[in-house]
Design a protein around this nucleic acid. Structure first.
Lengths: 199, 199
DNA sequence: GCTCTAATGTGAACGCCGCATACATGGTAA
DNA sequence: TTACCATGTATGCGGCGTTCACATTAGAGC
């Protein structure tokens, strides 16, 4: 009665669409993410998904929101409560790895202005930024948490995107990780780099 | 004989397509950038652009390449050869402003992996990164220019994207500029922020 | 100046897409 | 049991990218 067999009412088409969308995204990139393809994969008629998603954007927003939640888990798994620059760097590496391992999903998450069509999506994003701010607040009590967390988010986000766009050396996971760590370290020890030796 | 009047051979359809594409991009966003719409605006048949661009991606790549060149000019205009953190911050502000003033173009520039389909496009990107590396090398001779320029590029690029995605306060140009300056300053004075007073 | 060719623009057609509208089905609550 | 309403279907519209056969004409070579 749920999703197996051949009943006429699908059971949980909403979830099935989301799953199909994720699969299509990984297989064909965001270009392949069409409502019709999703319907095909879910085994329903081309317009059935409209019963659960107002339009294509709504589906995409749902996918993005799910991506945000997974990103949050992924970061927390890297380190539950980082306090030192090293630990923060580990979270940064996790962020970039997430982007590189699910490039199409990551792009979808940050593709459009996210005008608050989807409350679900807005909630998921603010959750991420709150999480980051909390880390910074805990790690650096004296600093302006708002400003500093924005800075580190931007740095990491930029690294992720530049890697994704092939603007940086993405030859191997280790190379990328070293790169990310170096950049985060630079954020907290930059003046040394300016006057000290190159290497 | 060139582009006026009603001759049958357009004269310079290639350039006309590029111009039309730019206009459509600013008016309707990247979704409105279709080859057919470009052809319509240029006053030719729907398939005429195929004589000058292999497919839609080729046109988009051409638009992106033009965007890179304009970005380079825009940065150079902000400061020809920055050497101090303040001057570098001015260039950073210019970068983010460029993104916010031409959001659709900026997104197109960094939307896809840019697999070297378009030699023109690759050249334009490497020009930007070389330019940046040059600045860093000149401003901070002791540092590892490669790593530091990557870091600052990522920081600024991330700020641009987060602003573009509405993840940060974009209420006014001044607010944004202050934000960018603060982040760049943080890159070179971060340890102070850690131990010093919040404000 | 004339002709031939290759570059450039046209027209029709295919299959895909998003989306709207009218209709069918069937689980569920009265 | 029945009647309702959520869910899925069928059909159709216009737009898109792209291909292919065809028309036009600028310009090279004579």
């Amino acid at each position: 009665m749920s999703q197996a067999g051949g009943t006429y009412h699908h059971g949980d088409l909403r979830a099935a669409c989301l799953r199909a969308a994720r699969e299509l995204l990984e297989e064909d990139g965001s270009a392949g993410l069409s409502l019709r393809a999703v319907a095909r994969r879910a085994g329903v008629s081309p317009t059935a998904p409209y019963r659960h998603y107002a339009d294509r954007d709504a589906l995409v927003s749902a996918v993005a929101a799910q991506g945000y939640r997974e990103l949050a888990e992924h970061l927390a798994a890297a380190h539950p409560a980082p306090t030192t620059p090293d630990e923060l760097a580990a979270v940064a590496v996790a962020y970039v790895r997430f982007a590189l391992e699910r490039p199409a999903l990551f792009r979808v998450m940050f593709a459009e202005p996210c005008d608050p069509n989807s409350e679900e999506r807005v909630a998921a994003t603010t959750a991420i930024s709150e999480y980051l701010r909390g880390i910074v607040r805990g790690a650096f009590p004296g600093a302006d948490a708002e400003a500093l967390s924005t800075t580190v988010w931007a740095l990491v986000h930029g690294l992720a995107f530049l890697h994704l766009d092939g603007k940086l050396d993405t030859s191997g996971p280790d190379v990328v990780a070293d790169q990310v760590r170096a950049s985060v370290q630079a954020l907290f020890t930059a003046p040394a780099a300016l006057s000290g030796a190159g290497e």
